[in-house]
Computed example of a mutant assay.
Amino acid sequence: MDTRAPTLVASVLPADFSELGQEVRRLEKAGVDRIQWDVMDGRFVPNITFGPDVISANRELVSMGFEAHLMVDDPDPMLPRWVEAGCEIVIVHAEACRHLHRTLSAIADLGAKAGVALNPATPLDAVTNVLDLVDLLLVMTVNPGFGGQQYIAAMEPKIAAARAEIDQRGLDIELEVDGGIAGSTIGAAARAGADVFCAGSALFNGADTIEQRTAALRSAADAGIEAR
């Protein structure tokens, strides 16, 4: 079983958008490994968020990695824009792609790592035939579209099944979880098999400092991975 060290990803949805550059710098200083840009189009999900120009404006401010989580219908025409904006990883939703194999290949052709996300109701079988093209598999632990939602613990068997599939096939794929990730949930997601953890509200909100919150999440993820 893969027991790589946990990667902590920050969703900037809860950030102060009027100080976005400062918020991104603050996350890097706190020890976050990379930023997730939750890109929403108002169609695939009801919210609307960042465009590539916003991401590009923040790219030179920090050295940590960027991933674009495209919660959009028909992402194919826009793929180059997110790579040009500085996203090393581009994640598309299996539910939004008519020809998923072609979309993942296009991301790789652009020089980025290809990720695929699954909504809670979407079975793992939806992506097993394209895992050879995938660098990152994202199991959503909430329904996408808004921050601050409650973690869906019923997704843990799907996380475990994804981990087993990756390990049995000897694939080098990061297994990410996103949605309701906090000190009270990150350990269970790690025990189920995740090694990448996207947190938003749990990083931005709390009585202690963002550095302390980051360290606490990483420690809980470490403990969960060790307990597998």
Score class of each variant (00 low, 15 high):
residue 182 A to V: 00
residue 34 R to D: 11
residue 27 L to N: 09
residue 210 I to M: 09
residue 137 L to S: 05
residue 175 L to G: 09
residue 126 A to N: 10
residue 105 S to V: 00
residue 153 A to R: 15
residue 173 I to K: 01
residue 138 L to T: 09
residue 123 P to F: 03
residue 175 L to Y: 08
residue 7 T to V: 15
residue 172 D to G: 00
residue 219 S to A: 15
residue 41 D to M: 09
residue 39 V to C: 07
residue 221 A to P: 11
residue 34 R to N: 13
residue 213 R to E: 06
residue 31 G to V: 01
residue 164 A to H: 14
residue 40 M to R: 10
residue 90 V to M: 06
residue 73 D to W: 08
residue 85 A to Q: 10
residue 16 D to T: 00
residue 167 D to F: 00
residue 11 S to E: 09
residue 86 G to E: 12
residue 175 L to S: 04
residue 150 Q to G: 00
residue 9 V to A: 12
residue 77 P to R: 08
residue 177 V to E: 15
residue 105 S to T: 08
residue 116 V to H: 08
residue 84 E to F: 00
residue 89 I to S: 04
residue 129 N to G: 07
residue 26 R to L: 11
residue 138 L to N: 07
residue 132 D to I: 01
residue 1 M to K: 13
residue 37 W to E: 04
residue 96 A to T: 06
residue 17 F to D: 02
residue 53 D to Y: 08
residue 199 A to I: 04
residue 20 L to A: 10
residue 174 E to L: 13
residue 70 L to V: 02
residue 42 G to S: 02
residue 144 P to T: 07
residue 36 Q to L: 14
residue 104 L to S: 07
residue 24 V to C: 02
residue 59 R to S: 05
residue 157 P to Y: 03
residue 144 P to R: 08
residue 155 M to Y: 01
residue 64 M to W: 11
residue 66 F to Q: 14
residue 113 K to M: 14
residue 11 S to W: 10
residue 220 A to S: 08
residue 71 M to E: 12
residue 206 G to D: 15
residue 101 H to C: 08
residue 48 I to M: 13
residue 97 C to G: 13
residue 92 V to Y: 08
residue 210 I to T: 11
residue 130 V to A: 04
residue 187 G to K: 06
residue 156 E to S: 04
residue 210 I to K: 03
residue 123 P to D: 14
residue 79 L to E: 07
residue 162 A to E: 09
residue 109 D to Q: 12
residue 99 H to S: 12
residue 78 M to W: 15
residue 171 L to Y: 00
residue 39 V to P: 10
residue 39 V to M: 07
residue 81 R to P: 01
residue 103 T to D: 15
residue 90 V to Y: 05
residue 173 I to T: 06
residue 108 A to E: 13
residue 192 A to R: 10
residue 123 P to I: 01
residue 163 R to S: 13
residue 173 I to M: 01
residue 55 I to K: 11
residue 139 V to Q: 04
residue 148 G to I: 01
residue 128 T to Q: 09
residue 75 P to T: 08
residue 221 A to Y: 10
residue 186 I to R: 02
residue 60 E to R: 15
residue 207 A to L: 13
residue 97 C to V: 01
residue 129 N to V: 01
residue 112 A to E: 07
residue 140 M to K: 11
residue 218 R to F: 07
residue 83 V to K: 13
residue 82 W to Y: 13
residue 73 D to M: 03
residue 65 G to K: 12
residue 150 Q to V: 05
residue 29 K to N: 10
residue 166 I to S: 03
residue 16 D to P: 00
residue 160 A to W: 12
residue 34 R to H: 14
residue 28 E to K: 06
residue 74 D to C: 01
residue 75 P to R: 02
residue 66 F to C: 14
residue 46 P to Q: 01
residue 77 P to C: 01
residue 193 G to Y: 13
residue 193 G to A: 05
residue 223 A to F: 00
residue 34 R to L: 15
residue 197 F to L: 08
residue 208 D to P: 10
residue 84 E to G: 06
residue 54 V to W: 13
residue 14 P to L: 02
residue 197 F to I: 04
residue 36 Q to I: 05
residue 124 L to C: 05
residue 91 I to P: 01
residue 68 A to K: 04
residue 221 A to M: 09
residue 36 Q to Y: 09
residue 118 L to K: 14
residue 216 A to M: 03
residue 205 N to V: 09
residue 19 E to G: 14
residue 155 M to T: 15
residue 206 G to W: 11
residue 80 P to S: 04
residue 166 I to E: 04
residue 210 I to Y: 03
residue 207 A to F: 07
residue 117 A to N: 05
residue 209 T to I: 07
residue 3 T to F: 14
